[in-house]
């Protein structure tokens, strides 16, 4: 198979690349507290891009996305805790497990359209946490608690690499032949099939990417917490935050998930210090308003209303 050529890189790519490179160079000099916030932001961004693969590109709303995050975290915790693997090896395992799980779940659930897919994925993390609670090998209700050192720079560069690969892949997918196939599926799946698009395969393909990166981000998140806890690892709130970031930023766009991560993560950390749960009051209203008023998200709205930005923003 011949890979499609990479088209010319636009300003959005350069902008994101500059952001990433500046972050990577500056990281060793950033004080600890802002650095941990930056790490959290990158984890959120990685989650947002992984949600973007399935929900942004195909329009399939995956409410159960956190199931990949949780399994990635547990796979990480298991190999690091039981086999004493290096945490980075654990992240790779988490990614692989996420991708495999997406392959299996996707083969079944991607047959369901619209709401049915959303509901079928919604029950996955609920069932997963119930199963984990009674699995002693994974620590049952206790979870897996590890005593790893505090190494923010390792966390930073790991999630940085994951995010960079993810954004690169997003660019490759959206600008190539696959991107056109996905846009067709998002537009009208039946019509897409009658033009020769193997919708089932394409959807499964991006769903695997989605599972892979969600699993990896889940593993890194577990690493920063030095452990995995069943109810947190599979908290639906994560799914919902991922969805929120993609919707707010702009579904299927290149810059959208990053913008969405900033918009969701910053109030998240700010309000966290005020009162628990308050940040979701703000985020919740924000999502509802954006979905109803500008369903195309920030990037989509900017492109629509400011023609000059159409060539720049993607």
């Amino acid at each position: 198979m011949k890979l499609p050529a990479i088209p010319k890189l636009g300003p959005t790519v350069w902008g994101i690349a500059a952001f990433l490179v500046v972050g990577a160079v500056a990281a060793p000099w950033i004080p600890i507290y802002p650095l941990t916030i930056l790490i959290g932001l990158l984890v959120f961004a990685a989650l947002a891009y992984s949600m973007n693969f399935i929900t942004g590109l195909t329009g399939y709303v995956s409410f159960g996305q956190v199931v990949f995050m949780g399994t990635g975290a547990y796979a990480w915790g298991y190999v690091v805790g039981t086999f004493r693997w290096h945490p980075i090896g654990g992240v790779l395992v988490g990614a692989a497990v996420g991708a495999l799980l997406a392959l299996g779940l996707g083969a079944v659930t991607l047959r369901f359209r619209g709401v049915y897919f959303a509901i079928a994925t919604l029950v996955m993390p609920l069932a997963a946490v119930d199963i984990i609670l009674v699995t002693p090998a994974l620590g049952g209700g206790q979870g897996i608690i590890l005593n790893l050192g505090f190494e923010p720079l390792s966390w930073f560069y790991t999630i940085w690499v994951i995010l960079a690969i993810e954004i690169g892949l997003t660019y490759w997918v959206t600008h190539g032949r696959i991107g056109y196939g996905l846009r067709a599926i998002k537009g009208d799946e039946d019509a897409a099939k009658t033009l020769g698009i193997d919708a089932a395969r394409l959807k499964l393909f991006v769903f695997c990417f989605s599972g892979l990166f969600t699993g990896a981000a889940g593993a890194v998140n577990a690493w920063t917490l030095s452990g995995v806890f069943p109810n947190d690892a599979f908290a639906l709130l994560f799914s919902l935050q991922m969805l929120a970031m993609v919707v707010i930023g702009g579904m299927g766009t290149l810059l959208g998930p990053l913008l969405g991560a900033v918009v969701v993560y910053i109030p998240h950390t700010y309000f966290l210090t005020v009162v628990v749960g308050a940040e979701f009051i703000v985020i919740g209203i924000l999502i509802a308003i954006i979905a109803l008023v500008i369903p195309e998200g920030i990037v989509g709205a900017l492109r629509r209303h400011i023609p000059a930005l159409r060539r720049i923003l993607e």
């Binding site: 050529a5 032949r177 056109y180 196939g181 009208d188 019509a191 897409a192 033009l195 020769g196």
Partner: peptide, 30 residues
């Protein structure tokens, strides 16, 4: 389709481009 089913969010050219990229040619060069 009896009732046309274009991809509403794509341009006319992209609609046709999708058909070229897939279809029976399966041309991978965008």
């Amino acid at each position: 389709h009896q009732i046309p089913k274009p991809f509403l969010g794509l341009t006319t050219r992209d609609n046709v481009g999708v058909a070229v990229l897939y279809g029976s040619r399966q041309d991978r060069d965008v």
